[in-house]
Design a protein around this nucleic acid. Structure first.
Lengths: 163, 163
DNA sequence: TTTTGCGTTAACAGTTTTGTAAACGCTCAT
DNA sequence: ATGAGCGTTTACAAAACTGTTAACGCAAAA
């Protein structure tokens, strides 16, 4: 592998790290994923640790997290006690679905809270301030509903169809 | 304000804090925004600090940040040296646009990096490994493109039309 | 059974983040 | 001019996070 190529890979790996961190998944997770995505053959924990200059322990934890997200696959070789990792074959769809699920989870949590708030406000004795807050909560609910609708319809259909 | 109502407000405020933190804006930012969103009249720095049980300094910083994002408005009263804050009138659209801009920024950063990677790989002497990586980069680009397309078309039009 | 080599777990240290208290500077009223 | 009241800045303390080292457990080889 040429020197320039190695540098390109390193750079993309860093970007993966930053992105993953933005999503709250931790830097290492993103680094591993991109690194393996740009690697033809599978690699052991130690391989990855050496390439990314991180401890084997850190790799172990992050790799398992990636596996549970369906983004990495484990494999073994006969007469070799190491575990090897490679990116999942359907990594693109897995990523998209994962992101959608994350967003949807946050959204539905918000939905529940807003609904609960509205109910409680309705049972309380309704003064002027309650009236105001209730109005605001209702506006927020409406906002969330349309956002949700947008998210559900065209996005899912377009994105999950990709290969 | 009834006790139950106060509790509802407190709860929603907490949720705002968590959400803002997820977006990388800091907890306080979200708390202030929701608190003011649920408050009929405008409040001074000290008012907010007392309600949220935080220092005036912290509120000062976060409130200015919110103002620069177009989510809060400052105002003054004659014969009173305090600054008052209230939520912007178009807070819904400001929020949506802000989120879209954030996402778009991340996306376009990714776009530049992927493009640069592809160029560099093309100029390098192309061995088997370069070929492989180049293929992966191209796949990633395609992914990003469709995601971007989805993000641009229906979302913007639907969301920014909202009041 | 013992040994070796692996992934994992747990305690810890370094770093970063977050919010506070106190000092500061500016504007307005006196 | 002087003092009071405000928002802001700065220095710092506490808390949270991240990744490492070292110990552990377990399976396969000797």
């Amino acid at each position: 592998m040429s020197d320039a190529t190695a540098q390109v890979r390193k750079r993309l790996t860093e970007i993966g790290g930053r992105t993953a961190q933005d999503l709250g998944l931790g830097r290492i997770v993103g680094q591993i994923l991109v690194h393996l995505y740009l690697t033809p053959n599978e690699e052991s924990l130690e391989d990855i640790a050496k390439e990314l200059e991180l401890s084997k322990a850190a790799i172990s934890i992050a790799a398992r997290q990636l596996e549970s997200l369906g983004l990495l696959r484990r494999s073994w070789k006969s007469g070799d006690r190491k575990t090897y990792y490679r990116t999942a074959d359907d990594i693109a769809t897995a990523l998209h679905q994962g992101l959608l699920i994350m967003v949807r989870n946050k959204m539905s949590l918000l939905a529940t809270e807003l609904q609960a708030a509205e109910s409680e406000l309705n049972t309380a004795d309704v003064g002027a301030e309650e009236e105001f807050i209730l109005g605001r909560v209702k506006r927020a609910k409406k906002l969330r509903d349309t956002a949700m609708a947008v998210l559900e319809n065209p996005l899912v259909k377009l994105l999950t169809r990709m290969k």
